[in-house]
Structures are given as structure tokens and as C-alpha cells.
Nucleic acid binder design. Structure first.
Lengths: 225, 225
DNA sequence: GCGGCGCGTCAAGAACACGTCAAGATTCGC
DNA sequence: GCGAATCTTGACGTGTTCTTGACGCGCCGC
């Protein structure tokens, strides 16, 4: 779950924000001043921070700098004062966004989504490790049991990708052919036979007795780890 | 130089922005409507886009979506209308920031800096040292094994930058062409062949047996240290 | 036991992708 | 406006990959 650190000394606003954010299924952590905010962030690093200016103890810029010293988590600054110099200072200190009070809740939520979207570009980290090889789909890298790289041709990658994405699930001939070669090749099952054989020769310890690329006669193939 | 695409049908504002941005040493490209903006971006991909809502031809959301279809370049939206629904729509479409007119120039500049800062997270891993060269992405400096400087052309830099940012990851032909030349050049794989060859001639000890710029036949290229 | 069917294997030709080179076109600085 | 650097474009040789057809084996129903 996404954790949001909320820093504000206005109890009412804090309450309103907490309710709204919790309803959107964010995990909310609150602090009423800068010092406890920094301590809290260090202990349980948030995925995003919302910081009100005009805290009782620390300057907003100080808090932002304190966070930016060790984390790149998105920071959204709230403020009642609409001074342009303050905006520039806090943005240049490392804040990602600056919202002037009063603001609409929907707008703030949209800005939160935008900031979080930027922060997590690649969530699909798919690495499959077996006794005989390591498969990194994102980096398109395959290494054998002794650490040597294994080279696959484009169609072999494509084929393996489809099978691995449907791990442990049976993928029919038609679906496989459609996804790799296109809808016009739905019936060319010999393509599958040839390329599956090549794949097995590269990743199976005993290509004749496949452990990972299983044939389901008459139906399709299945990848299993 | 950092290139900013400026889309607005208000000639006065366009002029004022262009002057201010140029003074800050940004390269400015302008368009007066959404269609030419998208075409322009496709031909010369910008590092940041500033888009005014209320363009004569296309909806702001459409323009943002058109860009987001192929690039993650930061997008800042300007608008006179202060409707919250519009803000939410365009932010959720993929815009990074939303500034309401009238705005202070200093604030906009600060928001531009913030957006650009986020877009280049590779500043912390900017120096790559290998047995054959030292590469400093931030300073755009490349030195050979004996300490002599190596000169790269703009496209060579761009190409190397994309590959190094995705270090150890395989970057497909399409992605590479899109990021360096723009989506209109998706199929010009010979560009890659030529420029990769030039790059290798400059940084590989044995250009015919590349150690760092690995080609994955039929798929793309990979930088590895 | 027999024949059909699906599967794995193999090999050869066609098609494709890559690296390389060189000549025009374009851009940029002076 | 000129010259140099850079980028685009086309062509060619080489190596790899894909397609295509043929063959044998094992399983299953008959």
C-alpha cells in the first residue's frame, strides 16, 4: 500500500485530508511539526510527502531539504501564503509541486496521482529463477546455470515471453500463434514445433525430456517453474 | 541544450515566454495549435512541453494523450479557466503540472526546473568507469583509457545516453529510435547501424568485437560494463 | 496388430539483419 | 557565403534466422 506522510499543524485540515486519503486506500502517517515529520520519515519512509508551510518549528524549505538529503520521494507543498518568492524557494529546494490554499480536494488527489505516477515508472519487475537458468524479462536477459549468457532469437523471446506471462497456465496453439506471428498464422502449428524445439535446446537441461516447456498434446504448451 | 516545446495560440504570451525562456538558455520551439504541436514534437522531441488549454483545434487532453502515447517528457499545462474538473482530467491524462493564468514568470520557471530535475534522475549515477574509458553523463565528458578526451557528436551522445541510462537492459530498436530521433523514425534501423558503428569506433578497444555496446540481433542493443 | 495423428527432429533455401563503406545532403560556425 | 563537421541515404558482403518440407517415433482408437 502507498504510504503518504502528511505534515500540517492545522488539525482540521489534517483530519479532512486523512479521511479523504484513507478513503482512497492510501496509508496515512501524520505529523504536526517539522521535527517529528523528519524523524517519522526516517523511521518509516513514505512514498509521498505532503508538507504545509508555516509549521511551528521549522521553515518549509528546511523540511524539504531535510528530506531531499536522503530520499527522492515526491514532495507536495501546501501553503496559504501566495508569495511567489516562497514558491520558487521551496520548489528549488526540491519540492515537486506547490498547491495554494484553499484548494479542491479532487485537484490535490489528481496531483498526488501525477506525482506517484512519475515516481514508479517500472513496477513490472519480472525475474524468474530456476535451477537451470535465470530469466529477466524486463532486461530481456537469460543466463544459464553457470552464469553464461544465453542468446535467444526474436521469435524465441516472443514465444518464451508469452508462455512465461501465463506461467503454469496452458496456452493454446491458436493463442500462441496469434500473439507471436499474428492472426494470419493461426494454423501453422509446425512453427510452434520447430521454435519450441529450439527453445528447449537452449534452456532445458535435457531437451528431450522437458522440465519447463511442457507439451499438452493436441492443445498447446505450458511454462512451469 | 534543453529544448522546450511551447504551445499557445495567444501571440503575446508566446512572445513573452519565448523571450524569458531563451534568456534562461533554453531552446524554444513554438506551435500555435495542437496538430502542429504534435507533428513538431514527433519530428524534434522536446525535453519538456508547455501546453495551453483552449487551443483552436484540439482539446488539451487530446494533445497530452497524443504526447503520452510515445514519450514521458514532462508536460506543464497552462490555463485561464480554473475549473477543477479540467485540472483533474488533464493531470490524469498524463500532465505533470497545471498552472493557472495569470501566473508569475518566476513561478513557472521554478516549476520548469522542478519538472526537468525529476525527468533526469540519472544524475547520481552519472559517472561510469570502465577499463577503456570514463563517461561523465552530467558533464558530457568522455575520456579514453590514456586520459585523452574523446569527442562525440550530438546524436552519438544522445544514443549513448539512452543506452547507459538503461544499463544492462536491452533497449529495442523502436524505443531507441523513438527516444533519439522521435516516433516518426521508428523504422529507420539503418540509422542505428551507422551511428552505433561510429560510437563503437570511438569507445570500443576492438570495434569489431564490441565489449560494451552489445547488439542483440533482431531486437536491439544493450550497454554493459 | 494396424493405421492415423500429433509431435519432435533435421536440413536446405529464402529472407532478413547486421556491419561497413562511401557518396550526397544538411547544418553550423566563422 | 564558405568550409568543416555531421547526418542521411544507398549499396554490398556476410552471417544468422525463419520458413518449409520430409521423416521417424510414440500414442491411441480401431
Amino acid at each position: 500500500m502507498t504510504r503518504i506522510l502528511l505534515v500540517d499543524d492545522d488539525t482540521h485540515l489534517l483530519r479532512a485530508l486523512r479521511i479523504n486519503l484513507t478513503a482512497r486506500r492510501y496509508e496515512v502517517v501524520t505529523a504536526a511539526d517539522g521535527t517529528t515529520a523528519l524523524a517519522l520519515a526516517a523511521r518509516t519512509p513514505p512514498d509521498l510527502a505532503i508538507i504545509d508551510l508555516g509549521l511551528p518549528d521549522l521553515d518549509g524549505v528546511t523540511v524539504v531539504e531535510g528530506l531531499r538529503g536522503w530520499t527522492q520521494t515526491p514532495i507536495i507543498v501546501l501553503s496559504a501564503r501566495d508569495s511567489e518568492a516562497a514558491k520558487v524557494a521551496v520548489l528549488d529546494a526540491g519540492a515537486d509541486d506547490y498547491v495554494t490554499k484553499p484548494f479542491g480536494m479532487d485537484e490535490l488527489l489528481a496531483r498526488i496521482r501525477a506525482a506517484l505516477r512519475r515516481a514508479t515508472p517500472g513496477t513490472d519487475i519480472a525475474v524468474i529463477t530456476t535451477a537451470d537458468f535465470v530469466l529477466d524479462l524486463a532486461a530481456k536477459r537469460l543466463t544459464g546455470s553457470s552464469g553464461e549468457p544465453v542468446r535467444l532469437t526474436p521469435t524465441e523471446w516472443h514465444l518464451l515471453e508469452v508462455l512465461v506471462r501465463n506461467r503454469d497456465k496452458l496456452v493454446g496453439h491458436r493463442q500462441l500463434l496469434q500473439e507471436v506471428w499474428g492472426p494470419a498464422y493461426e494454423t501453422e502449428t509446425n512453427y510452434l514445433r520447430v521454435h519450441l524445439a529450439n527453445l528447449r535446446r537452449k534452456i532445458e537441461p535435457q531437451p528431450a525430456r522437458p522440465r519447463y516447456l511442457i507439451t499438452e498434446p493436441g492443445i498447446g504448451y505450458r511454462f512451469t517453474a
